[in-house]
Amino acid sequence: MAERYSRQERFAPIGKEGQALLAEKHVLIVGAGALGSANAEMLARAGIGRITIIDRDYIEWSNLARQQLYTEEDAASSRAKAKAAEARLKAINSTINVEGIAEEFDPENAELLLKDVDILIDGTDNFNTRFIINDAACKYKIPWIYGGCVKSDGISLSILPGQTPCLQCLIDQLPQDIETCETAGIIGPAVQVTAAYQTAECLKFLTGHSMSTHLVSFDVWGRQYSSIDVVKLKDPHCASCSDDAQFPYLKKEKGIRTAVLCGRNTVQVRPGRKENVNLERLAQRIEPFAGEARVNEVLLRFHMEEKRFVVFKDGRTLIHGVEDVQEAKKLYHRYVEA
Protein backbone atom coordinates (compact mmCIF):
# COMPACT_ATOMS: atom_id res chain seq x y z
CA MET A 1 0.00 0.00 0.00
CA ALA A 2 2.95 2.32 0.61
CA GLU A 3 3.63 2.02 -3.11
CA ARG A 4 0.30 3.51 -3.96
CA TYR A 5 1.33 7.16 -4.13
CA SER A 6 5.03 6.60 -4.90
CA ARG A 7 5.01 8.28 -8.33
CA GLN A 8 3.10 11.28 -7.04
CA GLU A 9 5.51 11.56 -4.09
CA ARG A 10 8.42 11.41 -6.52
CA PHE A 11 7.04 14.58 -8.13
CA ALA A 12 9.21 17.18 -6.35
CA PRO A 13 6.61 19.89 -5.57
CA ILE A 14 4.46 17.33 -3.72
CA GLY A 15 6.91 14.86 -2.13
CA LYS A 16 6.11 12.70 0.88
CA GLU A 17 5.23 15.80 2.92
CA GLY A 18 2.69 16.93 0.34
CA GLN A 19 1.19 13.46 0.14
CA ALA A 20 0.75 13.41 3.93
CA LEU A 21 -1.02 16.79 3.71
CA LEU A 22 -3.42 15.50 1.02
CA ALA A 23 -4.51 12.67 3.35
CA GLU A 24 -5.70 15.25 5.91
CA LYS A 25 -7.72 17.42 3.51
CA HIS A 26 -11.42 17.65 2.71
CA VAL A 27 -12.57 18.65 -0.79
CA LEU A 28 -16.18 19.48 -1.65
CA ILE A 29 -17.14 18.92 -5.29
CA VAL A 30 -20.37 20.62 -6.35
CA GLY A 31 -21.82 18.82 -9.35
CA ALA A 32 -21.14 15.23 -10.42
CA GLY A 33 -21.55 15.66 -14.16
CA ALA A 34 -18.61 15.70 -16.57
CA LEU A 35 -16.31 18.10 -14.71
CA GLY A 36 -17.33 16.78 -11.31
CA SER A 37 -16.65 13.18 -12.37
CA ALA A 38 -13.26 13.97 -13.89
CA ASN A 39 -12.10 16.03 -10.89
CA ALA A 40 -13.45 13.51 -8.40
CA GLU A 41 -11.69 10.57 -10.02
CA MET A 42 -8.33 12.37 -10.11
CA LEU A 43 -8.68 13.57 -6.52
CA ALA A 44 -9.71 10.13 -5.24
CA ARG A 45 -6.75 8.50 -6.98
CA ALA A 46 -4.45 11.25 -5.64
CA GLY A 47 -5.39 10.28 -2.09
CA ILE A 48 -7.38 13.26 -0.80
CA GLY A 49 -8.45 12.16 2.70
CA ARG A 50 -12.08 13.13 2.40
CA ILE A 51 -14.24 13.92 -0.63
CA THR A 52 -17.83 15.10 -0.51
CA ILE A 53 -19.69 15.27 -3.83
CA ILE A 54 -23.17 16.79 -4.17
CA ASP A 55 -25.40 16.61 -7.24
CA ARG A 56 -29.11 17.18 -7.95
CA ASP A 57 -29.39 15.06 -11.07
CA TYR A 58 -29.61 11.43 -12.14
CA ILE A 59 -27.77 9.53 -14.86
CA GLU A 60 -29.11 9.49 -18.42
CA TRP A 61 -27.77 7.81 -21.55
CA SER A 62 -26.61 11.16 -22.96
CA ASN A 63 -24.20 11.48 -20.01
CA LEU A 64 -22.16 8.37 -20.77
CA ALA A 65 -20.08 9.84 -23.62
CA ARG A 66 -18.17 12.05 -21.19
CA GLN A 67 -19.16 11.49 -17.55
CA GLN A 68 -16.49 8.98 -16.70
CA LEU A 69 -17.73 7.62 -13.37
CA TYR A 70 -20.93 6.11 -14.81
CA THR A 71 -21.95 2.91 -16.57
CA GLU A 72 -24.81 1.70 -18.76
CA GLU A 73 -26.37 0.08 -15.72
CA ASP A 74 -26.47 3.47 -13.96
CA ALA A 75 -28.25 5.05 -16.94
CA ALA A 76 -30.72 2.16 -17.27
CA SER A 77 -31.75 2.50 -13.63
CA SER A 78 -31.72 6.35 -13.55
CA ARG A 79 -29.36 6.20 -10.60
CA ALA A 80 -28.68 9.44 -8.72
CA LYS A 81 -25.28 10.77 -9.84
CA ALA A 82 -24.13 11.47 -6.29
CA LYS A 83 -24.80 7.89 -5.20
CA ALA A 84 -23.25 6.25 -8.27
CA ALA A 85 -20.22 8.57 -7.95
CA GLU A 86 -19.80 7.65 -4.29
CA ALA A 87 -19.83 3.92 -5.09
CA ARG A 88 -17.37 4.25 -7.97
CA LEU A 89 -14.97 6.51 -6.03
CA LYS A 90 -14.97 4.09 -3.09
CA ALA A 91 -14.14 1.26 -5.49
CA ILE A 92 -11.27 3.33 -6.93
CA ASN A 93 -9.83 4.18 -3.50
CA SER A 94 -11.12 2.38 -0.42
CA THR A 95 -8.64 4.13 1.89
CA ILE A 96 -10.31 7.56 1.71
CA ASN A 97 -13.68 8.84 2.94
CA VAL A 98 -16.23 9.54 0.22
CA GLU A 99 -19.75 10.83 0.66
CA GLY A 100 -22.24 11.46 -2.15
CA ILE A 101 -25.21 13.75 -1.43
CA ALA A 102 -28.20 13.60 -3.81
CA GLU A 103 -29.35 17.17 -3.29
CA GLU A 104 -29.04 20.59 -4.83
CA PHE A 105 -26.31 22.93 -3.51
CA ASP A 106 -28.34 25.93 -2.37
CA PRO A 107 -28.31 28.84 0.11
CA GLU A 108 -29.98 26.62 2.75
CA ASN A 109 -27.37 23.86 2.87
CA ALA A 110 -24.29 25.86 1.80
CA GLU A 111 -23.10 26.72 5.32
CA LEU A 112 -23.33 23.15 6.58
CA LEU A 113 -21.66 21.76 3.47
CA LEU A 114 -18.73 24.19 3.68
CA LYS A 115 -18.02 23.34 7.31
CA ASP A 116 -14.54 21.74 7.63
CA VAL A 117 -13.96 21.98 3.87
CA ASP A 118 -10.48 23.05 2.68
CA ILE A 119 -11.41 23.84 -0.91
CA LEU A 120 -14.42 23.60 -3.25
CA ILE A 121 -14.31 22.40 -6.85
CA ASP A 122 -16.89 23.67 -9.33
CA GLY A 123 -18.40 20.78 -11.28
CA THR A 124 -21.65 22.59 -12.09
CA ASP A 125 -23.10 23.29 -15.52
CA ASN A 126 -24.79 26.62 -14.85
CA PHE A 127 -24.05 30.14 -13.60
CA ASN A 128 -26.98 30.25 -11.15
CA THR A 129 -25.30 27.64 -8.96
CA ARG A 130 -21.83 29.10 -9.54
CA PHE A 131 -22.92 32.46 -8.13
CA ILE A 132 -24.34 30.69 -5.06
CA ILE A 133 -21.01 28.86 -4.71
CA ASN A 134 -19.15 32.14 -5.12
CA ASP A 135 -21.15 33.94 -2.42
CA ALA A 136 -20.93 31.02 0.00
CA ALA A 137 -17.20 30.61 -0.60
CA CYS A 138 -16.63 34.35 -0.07
CA LYS A 139 -18.77 34.40 3.09
CA TYR A 140 -17.05 31.41 4.71
CA LYS A 141 -13.60 32.19 3.20
CA ILE A 142 -13.24 28.89 1.38
CA PRO A 143 -11.15 28.88 -1.83
CA TRP A 144 -12.87 27.52 -4.92
CA ILE A 145 -11.90 26.65 -8.47
CA TYR A 146 -14.23 27.66 -11.28
CA GLY A 147 -14.31 25.44 -14.35
CA GLY A 148 -16.54 25.58 -17.41
CA CYS A 149 -16.56 23.80 -20.75
CA VAL A 150 -18.71 23.62 -23.86
CA LYS A 151 -18.01 22.43 -27.42
CA SER A 152 -14.21 22.05 -27.49
CA ASP A 153 -13.62 25.09 -25.24
CA GLY A 154 -12.78 25.22 -21.57
CA ILE A 155 -11.96 27.81 -18.93
CA SER A 156 -10.75 27.82 -15.34
CA LEU A 157 -9.93 30.27 -12.55
CA SER A 158 -8.82 29.77 -8.95
CA ILE A 159 -10.53 32.07 -6.45
CA LEU A 160 -9.07 32.84 -3.03
CA PRO A 161 -11.71 34.96 -1.25
CA GLY A 162 -10.39 38.26 0.05
CA GLN A 163 -7.16 37.97 -1.91
CA THR A 164 -7.95 37.39 -5.57
CA PRO A 165 -10.91 38.54 -7.69
CA CYS A 166 -14.08 36.48 -7.24
CA LEU A 167 -16.55 35.49 -9.96
CA GLN A 168 -18.70 38.54 -9.15
CA CYS A 169 -15.67 40.87 -9.64
CA LEU A 170 -15.25 39.47 -13.16
CA ILE A 171 -18.89 39.03 -14.14
CA ASP A 172 -21.23 41.65 -12.71
CA GLN A 173 -24.40 40.09 -14.08
CA LEU A 174 -25.73 36.58 -14.61
CA PRO A 175 -24.79 35.65 -18.19
CA GLN A 176 -27.87 35.20 -20.39
CA ASP A 177 -28.40 33.04 -23.46
CA ILE A 178 -25.22 31.17 -22.78
CA GLU A 179 -24.38 28.05 -24.77
CA THR A 180 -24.89 24.80 -22.84
CA CYS A 181 -23.66 21.27 -23.42
CA GLU A 182 -27.21 20.36 -24.48
CA THR A 183 -27.57 23.15 -27.05
CA ALA A 184 -24.02 23.54 -28.41
CA GLY A 185 -22.56 20.11 -27.67
CA ILE A 186 -19.38 19.07 -25.89
CA ILE A 187 -16.53 16.63 -26.40
CA GLY A 188 -14.74 14.64 -23.70
CA PRO A 189 -11.29 16.17 -24.31
CA ALA A 190 -12.60 19.66 -23.40
CA VAL A 191 -13.86 18.22 -20.10
CA GLN A 192 -10.57 16.47 -19.36
CA VAL A 193 -8.36 19.51 -19.99
CA THR A 194 -10.60 21.80 -17.91
CA ALA A 195 -10.66 19.30 -15.05
CA ALA A 196 -6.89 18.85 -15.33
CA TYR A 197 -6.38 22.58 -14.69
CA GLN A 198 -8.83 22.48 -11.78
CA THR A 199 -7.32 19.41 -10.11
CA ALA A 200 -3.75 20.66 -10.59
CA GLU A 201 -4.65 23.95 -8.86
CA CYS A 202 -6.42 22.01 -6.11
CA LEU A 203 -3.33 19.82 -5.48
CA LYS A 204 -1.15 22.96 -5.43
CA PHE A 205 -3.33 24.63 -2.83
CA LEU A 206 -3.65 21.55 -0.62
CA THR A 207 0.11 20.97 -0.58
CA GLY A 208 0.89 24.55 0.42
CA HIS A 209 1.68 26.11 -2.95
CA SER A 210 0.18 29.34 -4.31
CA MET A 211 -2.58 29.02 -6.87
CA SER A 212 -2.41 30.92 -10.15
CA THR A 213 -4.16 34.29 -10.55
CA HIS A 214 -4.52 33.69 -14.28
CA LEU A 215 -7.80 33.05 -16.04
CA VAL A 216 -6.95 30.26 -18.45
CA SER A 217 -8.95 29.25 -21.50
CA PHE A 218 -8.41 26.98 -24.45
CA ASP A 219 -9.95 25.34 -27.49
CA VAL A 220 -8.63 21.80 -27.55
CA TRP A 221 -9.94 21.17 -31.09
CA GLY A 222 -8.74 24.45 -32.62
CA ARG A 223 -5.53 24.33 -30.55
CA GLN A 224 -5.94 27.79 -29.06
CA TYR A 225 -4.75 28.78 -25.62
CA SER A 226 -4.98 32.01 -23.68
CA SER A 227 -4.08 33.09 -20.19
CA ILE A 228 -4.73 36.49 -18.58
CA ASP A 229 -3.58 37.62 -15.14
CA VAL A 230 -6.81 39.00 -13.65
CA VAL A 231 -5.49 39.93 -10.19
CA LYS A 232 -6.06 43.65 -10.92
CA LEU A 233 -9.78 43.04 -11.53
CA LYS A 234 -10.50 42.57 -7.82
CA ASP A 235 -13.33 45.02 -7.15
CA PRO A 236 -12.97 46.85 -3.80
CA HIS A 237 -16.76 47.39 -3.74
CA CYS A 238 -17.73 43.86 -4.86
CA ALA A 239 -21.16 42.71 -3.61
CA SER A 240 -19.71 39.27 -2.88
CA CYS A 241 -16.11 39.57 -1.71
CA SER A 242 -15.49 43.12 -0.41
CA ASP A 243 -15.60 44.15 3.27
CA ASP A 244 -19.20 45.33 2.87
CA ALA A 245 -20.36 42.32 0.88
CA GLN A 246 -24.12 41.62 0.72
CA PHE A 247 -23.88 38.05 -0.69
CA PRO A 248 -26.85 38.65 -3.02
CA TYR A 249 -27.12 35.01 -4.10
CA LEU A 250 -27.45 33.67 -0.55
CA LYS A 251 -30.79 35.36 0.06
CA LYS A 252 -33.27 32.61 0.79
CA GLU A 253 -36.44 32.54 -1.26
CA LYS A 254 -39.78 31.56 0.18
CA GLY A 255 -42.48 29.28 -1.21
CA ILE A 256 -42.30 27.00 -4.21
CA ARG A 257 -39.29 27.61 -6.41
CA THR A 258 -38.77 26.69 -10.02
CA ALA A 259 -35.80 26.60 -12.36
CA VAL A 260 -35.80 26.00 -16.08
CA LEU A 261 -32.94 23.63 -16.94
CA CYS A 262 -31.78 25.27 -20.11
CA GLY A 263 -31.69 23.26 -23.29
CA ARG A 264 -33.24 20.21 -21.63
CA ASN A 265 -36.95 20.93 -22.00
CA THR A 266 -37.16 20.43 -18.25
CA VAL A 267 -38.39 22.43 -15.26
CA GLN A 268 -37.27 21.77 -11.70
CA VAL A 269 -39.87 22.43 -9.01
CA ARG A 270 -38.92 22.62 -5.33
CA PRO A 271 -41.24 22.73 -2.33
CA GLY A 272 -40.99 25.73 0.00
CA ARG A 273 -39.34 23.61 2.63
CA LYS A 274 -37.53 20.33 2.30
CA GLU A 275 -39.57 17.41 3.50
CA ASN A 276 -39.05 13.71 3.44
CA VAL A 277 -41.35 12.35 0.79
CA ASN A 278 -42.31 8.70 1.17
CA LEU A 279 -41.52 7.65 -2.38
CA GLU A 280 -43.03 4.18 -2.05
CA ARG A 281 -46.33 5.58 -0.89
CA LEU A 282 -46.35 8.22 -3.63
CA ALA A 283 -45.61 5.48 -6.17
CA GLN A 284 -48.56 3.42 -4.93
CA ARG A 285 -50.86 6.43 -5.10
CA ILE A 286 -50.03 7.37 -8.68
CA GLU A 287 -49.47 3.81 -9.97
CA PRO A 288 -53.08 3.35 -11.19
CA PHE A 289 -52.79 6.46 -13.43
CA ALA A 290 -49.12 6.64 -14.29
CA GLY A 291 -46.93 4.72 -16.69
CA GLU A 292 -43.94 2.84 -15.29
CA ALA A 293 -43.64 4.11 -11.72
CA ARG A 294 -40.20 3.02 -10.47
CA VAL A 295 -38.44 3.77 -7.21
CA ASN A 296 -34.70 3.49 -6.54
CA GLU A 297 -32.53 4.48 -3.55
CA VAL A 298 -33.19 8.23 -3.80
CA LEU A 299 -35.82 8.92 -6.45
CA LEU A 300 -39.15 7.95 -8.02
CA ARG A 301 -39.77 8.25 -11.73
CA PHE A 302 -43.02 7.92 -13.64
CA HIS A 303 -44.82 9.06 -16.79
CA MET A 304 -47.98 11.16 -16.75
CA GLU A 305 -49.70 13.28 -19.40
CA GLU A 306 -46.78 12.51 -21.75
CA LYS A 307 -44.37 14.12 -19.28
CA ARG A 308 -41.61 12.34 -17.41
CA PHE A 309 -41.49 13.03 -13.66
CA VAL A 310 -38.52 12.43 -11.38
CA VAL A 311 -39.25 13.03 -7.68
CA PHE A 312 -36.40 13.10 -5.16
CA LYS A 313 -36.75 12.23 -1.47
CA ASP A 314 -36.68 15.90 -0.40
CA GLY A 315 -39.63 16.71 -2.67
CA ARG A 316 -37.57 18.29 -5.44
CA THR A 317 -39.06 17.27 -8.78
CA LEU A 318 -37.80 17.36 -12.35
CA ILE A 319 -40.53 17.47 -14.98
CA HIS A 320 -39.28 16.63 -18.47
CA GLY A 321 -41.24 17.61 -21.55
CA VAL A 322 -42.28 21.03 -20.29
CA GLU A 323 -40.65 24.46 -20.52
CA ASP A 324 -43.40 26.64 -19.08
CA VAL A 325 -42.96 27.28 -15.37
CA GLN A 326 -46.67 27.75 -14.64
CA GLU A 327 -47.57 24.51 -16.35
CA ALA A 328 -44.83 22.72 -14.39
CA LYS A 329 -46.18 24.10 -11.09
CA LYS A 330 -49.67 22.89 -11.97
CA LEU A 331 -48.40 19.41 -12.75
CA TYR A 332 -46.41 19.40 -9.52
CA HIS A 333 -49.46 20.34 -7.42
CA ARG A 334 -51.62 17.81 -9.20
CA TYR A 335 -49.40 14.72 -8.95
CA VAL A 336 -46.57 15.20 -6.45
CA GLU A 337 -47.83 17.48 -3.72
CA ALA A 338 -51.39 16.17 -3.50
Partner: peptide, 10 residues
Protein backbone atom coordinates in the same frame (compact mmCIF):
# COMPACT_ATOMS: atom_id res chain seq x y z
CA UNK B 1 -4.54 40.80 -27.83
CA UNK B 2 -5.74 38.04 -25.51
CA UNK B 3 -9.46 37.30 -25.31
CA UNK B 4 -11.04 34.88 -22.86
CA UNK B 5 -14.79 34.40 -22.82
CA UNK B 6 -16.72 32.69 -20.06
CA UNK B 7 -18.41 29.38 -20.72
CA UNK B 8 -21.05 27.81 -18.53
CA UNK B 9 -21.25 24.09 -19.26
CA UNK B 10 -19.70 21.30 -17.33
Amino acid sequence: IEIVHFVGGG
